[in-house]
Design a protein around this nucleic acid. Structure first.
Lengths: 263, 263
DNA sequence: CGGCTTTTTGATGTCCGTCAATCAGTGTGG
DNA sequence: CCACACTGATTGACGGACATCAAAAAGCCG
């Protein structure tokens, strides 16, 4: 029983072949590109830099963020191992936001010029387009969550997003994984405060939906999380029969699975 | 004195030439494409449709939205006359959201297959990429607003976004314009309720920042709006000296300018 | 004028932010 | 080994921004 949320973007059949081989060519180009490492909590790219490169994350987690005039930080998006970051630098003269390493990050990079050359290959151009489309989808889901979900729903949606993306990259098989973000960073991504994230995580734990302890995330009730992330009304009425969890139709999802790091 | 917010995305010099001619070629293709009209408050594209076309809005305003399980609606983004909608349909098999006409909308459209053909031209591929990058920027700003601005800031940012985009398309010259959205639609875009939007607009009017009456928007204090949209703390302390507005450094910005419709 | 949508306004409640203190985990150095 | 510092998480008390509910007013259109 597959839900749309965790299925990979399916492609237009007209373009499917070219998209696939284009993506492959693009990744191959990255594999031959120079490689670097950034320490935890350091800036990888800043908007000051002109002609920023395009990155492929080989290991670790990074995020793009900005700081407002009042000092508040907004984490616009999160990138996992295997993600390509800043594809728009092929045409944009500078990055729109700062790119930070959440933990130790290894990445390889291509100059914008090199990227433009690659795009001369129509297959690669299509592959890039598909990549962009997919990142756009995650971002759009994030917008929906920010627009119409409360703290509980946003956190559920966020956990599921990371979960689905890790699975898509085959970086996780069980129902638990490592997320190297502090609660403050999660808060800055979801438009909440650290304090409220902490409280909401406790609630989700008490409801036996998901367990977040430090950087270890264990999904207990996947189907329940999906319902919440989809904006179902709070289960104040339907929790009349407390006790047993009866919902996990999508997957057995028990804790005790091997936690896999996103590396 | 130009602020970054209202400057068009500047391009990587390596690609600038190709981007420009690519954009021109893409628009030309649309001008030769078939054309349709959609009535106010009707669906233009739905996720059910397989192989949705890519659209160029020739006239009117459209928005992409989804409805959650609890009935709440989220308007993910807004498209103005001159915008290209659904470029990702070149590779995605279906639209991610419904596309609605906010008022009478005229558009021309290309099939995904045709788009893929066009992308074989590297200049067009670059042009499309630049287009995508620009739309992404607006969306990212929207995310920042949703994440870290209150109702006042979100509305300010939204008004400015529309204003800047209209100017970029040379659809507005003065400081007033027409925005064919109801307050409920604005609320669904900004993650607020209609009621609170109404109240906040009154406050912005009383502060002599912007005047929103029905669909007519008159920007009174452009610089002030920009400050609020950038997340400056509420001016509770600095309003000690009430009375005169002294801020408009960016533009004279007086009401009485000719209101231009976004057509 | 009647019926509709859209906006406005008031009263009341709640989700979430703010402030502040405590606690747990991690590392450091004497 | 144990103070010490430091970062991150937790909890409580309290206030405020925003939601909800409800009703009325204002536009708009046939």
């Amino acid at each position: 029983m597959d839900r749309s949320a965790n299925r990979a973007l399916d492609h237009n059949p007209v373009a499917a072949e070219d998209v696939l081989s284009g993506s492959r060519l693009l990744r191959r180009a990255f594999l031959e590109a120079p490689q670097r490492t950034a320490a935890r909590e350091t800036i990888i790219l800043s908007p000051e830099l002109r002609g920023p490169p395009v990155l492929l994350l080989r290991r670790g987690l990074a995020y793009r963020s900005t700081t407002l005039a009042n000092g508040a930080r907004a984490i616009v998006d999160v990138f996992l191992t295997g993600d390509i970051v800043g594809i728009e630098h092929a045409v944009a003269a500078r990055a729109a936001f700062e790119l930070w390493a959440a933990d130790v990050v290894t990445y390889s990079f291509l100059s914008p010029g090199k990227l433009c050359q690659l795009m001369a290959n129509p297959e690669i151009a299509l592959g890039i387009m598909a990549l962009t489309a997919e990142q756009q989808r995650w971002r759009e889901q994030h917008i929906v969550a920010l627009t119409r979900l409360n703290a509980r729903g946003r956190i559920a949606a966020f956990v599921l997003e990371i979960y689905d993306r890790l699975r898509q990259h085959q970086l996780v098989t069980g129902s638990s994984f490592i997320l190297p973000l502090t609660q403050e960073q999660i808060a800055d991504h979801l438009g909440l405060t650290m304090v409220h994230v902490s409280r909401t995580l406790r609630r989700l734990r008490e409801e036996r939906l998901v367990l977040v302890d430090r950087q270890v995330i264990i999904i207990i009730d996947l189907a329940g999380l999906r319902r919440i992330a989809a904006g179902d009304a709070d289960p104040f009425d339907e929790t009349a029969g407390a006790g047993l969890v009866e919902t996990s139709s999508e997957m057995p999802a028990r804790d005790g699975d091997v936690p896999l790091s996103p590396q």
